[in-house]
């Protein structure tokens, strides 16, 4: 219990002009923790995710990250190349739309291998072997390694995106609606895979989703957002089984039983 947080967000705020995107979000994330961010469209969850992953600069607040060497750095005072290197190696980002996270004209093996080359791997045979291993782990047949993701189904593309992100053994992964737009049977397979890999590799993850079932299955902790603010946070089962805020109660009671 004495370990230090991996990531500390303090008072993260974003205004788009005068329009509030996200106000005063603060939390700590520890290694191996999976946190879900839930809320309706426009609640600010994607803004928060984009600030955390340094895609947009906060209007106020700071993000502290503990590097592999143990030093704690403020992400927005780091140099741009250092931040980019972090994003390519120690972090992963899984987009809802796999086309944004993949190179559609490059082979599956190339998509996975590219991240390895970013961390200095140069041996072609090793890269290919590792890529093949990761395709296997996300249940893509090795025979498809030289095909481009254009020839893949939606579910396969999403699994390939996950392999591409995890091949460098990142410590933190961001996911934006990772199962959005997939059939339920394909969703179940992807969720099972994510759950297993994230827990085996002890990766910390921040998962934005509007699907409370996805949050329950994947996360230990949850933040509920509404109107740009975090209105309720805690253990996932606690918040979902004993919601306190009116909006959280509405969310939980709006689920249709299967």
């Amino acid at each position: 219990m004495n370990e230090q947080p991996l990531l500390i967000a303090e008072g993260l705020t974003k205004y788009y002009g005068r329009q509030l995107g996200c106000r005063d979000a603060s939390f700590e994330l520890y290694e191996g923790e999976v946190m879900a961010v839930v809320g309706e469209s426009g609640s600010g969850k994607t803004t928060l995710l984009q600030m955390l992953s340094t895609q947009i600069e906060p209007s106020a607040g700071q993000i502290l990250y503990r590097m592999r060497d143990g030093s704690v750095q403020d992400l927005w005072t780091m140099s741009e190349p250092a931040r980019r290197f972090l994003l390519r190696t120690d972090w992963g980002y899984v987009h809802q739309d796999p086309q944004l996270g993949l190179r559609m004209g490059v082979s599956a093996g190339g998509n996975v291998g590219e991240r390895l080359m970013a961390v200095g791997n140069r041996n072609y045979a090793d890269i290919r072997a590792t890529a093949a291993d990761w395709l296997g782990r996300v249940e893509i047949p090795e025979a498809r390694i030289d095909d481009t993701p254009r020839t893949y189904s939606g579910g396969m593309r999403q699994r390939l995106q996950i392999a591409r992100n995890l091949v460098t053994a990142p410590r933190l992964i961001f996911m934006d609606e990772p199962t959005g737009g997939l059939d339920v049977s394909v969703q179940a397979r992807l969720l099972d895979l994510l759950r297993r890999i994230v827990s085996e590799m002890r990766i910390a993850a921040i998962v934005v989703t509007h699907d409370l079932a996805v949050a329950r299955l994947l996360s230990n902790r949850i933040m509920v957002m509404k109107g740009g603010q975090v209105i309720e946070a805690g253990l996932t089962d606690q918040v979902l089984d004993d919601p306190h805020q009116p909006y959280t109660q509405l969310l939980v009671s709006s689920i249709l039983p299967a």
Partner: peptide, 26 residues
């Protein structure tokens, strides 16, 4: 804090109901 509760659950606290929360494919 949430992570303290998770740690206690993992180390020391078991809770068994009559209902299984089945996870697809497991």
């Amino acid at each position: 804090a949430p992570r303290e509760i998770l740690s206690v659950r993992q180390r020391a606290l078991g809770y068994v109901t009559q209902f299984l929360r089945a996870v697809p494919r497991v």
